[in-house]
Write a protein that binds this DNA or RNA. Structure first.
Lengths: 349, 349
DNA sequence: ATGAATATAGAAAACGTTTACTGTAGATTT
DNA sequence: AAATCTACAGTAAACGTTTTCTATATTCAT
């Protein structure tokens, strides 16, 4: 590997000057020598030895991206968003899966600090960052897609209220008056906010809530199936159901269909997440997409601000997304589409 | 951060001894001092400064995991497999997305070398490693889920022939005689091998091939739909169709159902990949799983062997997987299951 | 013409390791 | 009893940067 010494010799200058030209863009060096050095560096295929660089500067240009066993299928898209902006600023991502035991978690973080990573991004982890902030030894960090209700722990999350309102209002605008709801497990902030948005949107439209057509599940298909069965026992059936995620919406649609009713003609359904299943089932599910890529970008941006501008971390950042109209809501009924032609704004699949 | 000097002082020895105890496990150091040093290191929360370490040793304990824009939804599982074994051996993964332009690709690799990564793992990339081996400056590498037909480029891929034969033989054993086939695009080795396995298995069972019931698609749902439509124009319909992936199988099932035929009663279908869609559509699709996690593990193992034992790279490693029996093949027909209860052997979802 | 300010660039120290070399006991051989 | 070996541990150099301090030549104001 060619070092700074080789470049210095080739350009006929001292290593100090080479270093200054190659790393400090604004140090006063005559234009002629500058060009000569850049030329030589290029010719020799020089690239800086990061080990030496970070030993000296105590910065590694590496960000630890931390996942755990609860990180979902959403994580890859979030990571792409992170990388898109981090790479652009010259940072690499050290991606690690946090082990189960809190004890070994500390060890992993310790190890990462040994690698002198410049910051941490926690992707969908339940790791109690706030309590172990000392562990991070003052390095900045960001949390994506998980919310802790400590005041000084910053998170980038979907704007659940805004996004959920999109879905409910869409049904209301289509003329639905009796709209049911299937929520997620209560320990998730997303469950809470989505339900709240439903209640608020209904109230804003002057529509009544009816506990008979409000139920809950655990995010998974069978629980959506069962929740819908419970709702279908109501004397007065809803004309539409908002479901807190697509998996449960899928289960709910099955239950409705097994009851001999049609979706969306008899009961319209709207889901959340833009899950793979929503694109391929029959009918395809109208759903609220998650702004995953954007969330990654924003979290990385947050971290970069802390890193370069010594900016204070944002407390919470809420990202808006959009409603993807498919068949299950009735707006596109009769239009048989095999695969969705919807393309995410970020260009991802 | 506490350094080796702090530990040395606390233990009352020189830094050389500390280094020897902490990194060279077999260097002769009296048991008493050894314990004292380990104790001190622990008490002070010492962890080695990787920058200094890799500057000195020219090893970084980091492996570059390289993706590109063609990396599929399979990549995350492969990466988990990689990490499972790499982390276990003390390596971290620098995960990067290769940019489009070959020019900037070289730059990224150059940068990674600057970080003195110890090896490269290419995950589903089309990067022509063989041609640019010089670029990697002699570092070992492994390729996962992509096959290049150069003699000295090693790849870890599914054992397509074995796995595909599982599917075809299953149908044959169930008594099917007239079995159609929908293949993937010919530029993929997997398309080629899966088709070959079909032909061989049919021949081995003494069954004839009929071009009328063999068609092809581009991996995506609509192409499977159209391929099935073509097959359904045959005068003598097949009693079963093997489809080269689940997305196309899903499309094919739609086409069959729209024709008024039932799956699996009239035409059985078997797919590939254990795609998410195979678990949730109606009927659920019997499919050949991809040994993604295992492939990651094996590739990482290969690399580690090259790294630690200076072993020669394996040329090609073929990983066997298994057939997941669901509804679409008829073996479990009538058993209405909402979600599959199949659990991957690697414990992943 | 003198002194001060400026522009440019070199010398050398420092970052925290690893390791080749050296040193010193005590044990073993002759 | 001298010579050699062994087990253990310390000294110091080196890895490739960045950066402080210093030095020189040039420019500028007086």
């Amino acid at each position: 590997m060619t070092t700074i010494h080789d470049v210095a010799e080739a350009a006929g200058v001292s290593i100090a000057t080479v270093s200054r030209v190659l790393s400090k863009s604004n140090y006063p060096v005559s234009d002629e020598t500058r060009q000569r050095i850049i030329r030589a560096a290029k010719d020799l295929g020089y690239s800086v030895n990061r080990a030496a660089q970070s030993l000296r500067t105590e910065r590694s240009m590496m960000i630890a991206v931390i996942l755990d066993n609860f990180s979902s299928m959403f994580a890859p898209t979030i990571i792409r968003g992170l990388q898109a902006v981090l790479h652009h600023s010259g940072y690499f991502c050290l991606v690690v899966n946090l082990p189960w035991e809190i004890h070994s978690q500390a060890k992993v973080v310790q190890d990462l600090l040994g690698h002198s990573v410049d910051g941490f991004i926690f992707v969908e982890t339940w790791h109690p960052v706030s309590e172990s902030k000392a562990m991070l030894s003052g390095k900045p960090y960001a949390i994506v897609h998980r919310l802790f209700h400590q005041p000084d722990v910053n998170s980038v999350i979907p704007d659940e209220i805004y996004n959920a309102t999109l879905a409910v209002n869409h049904l209301i605008q289509m003329g639905h008056q009796r709209i049911g709801y299937i929520s997620g497990p209560s320990e998730f902030f997303s469950s809470h906010d989505r339900l709240k948005a439903y209640e608020q949107a209904m109230a804003a439209a002057g529509l009544a809530l009816d506990k008979k057509i409000i139920s809950g599940g655990d995010w998974h298909i069978p629980s959506g199936y069962r929740a819908a069965q419970r709702i279908l026992e109501a004397r007065k059936l809803p004309s539409a159901i908002v479901v807190a995620n697509d998996q449960m919406a899928f289960g709910a649609i099955r239950a409705i269909q097994e009851k001999g009713l049609r979706v969306p003609e008899d009961i319209a359904v709207v889901g959340y997440d833009d899950d793979e299943v929503a694109k391929v089932c029959t009918p395809t599910i109208t759903t609220v997409s998650l702004p995953l890529f954007k969330m990654g970008q924003v979290a990385a941006g947050n971290l970069l601000n802390q890193l370069t501008k010594a900016a204070a971390p944002e407390a919470e950042t809420h990202i808006k997304s959009e409603l993807i109209i498919r068949q299950s809501c009735g707006a596109a009924a009769g239009q048989h589409v095999l695969a969705t032609d919807y393309v995410r704004p970020d260009g991802q699949a």
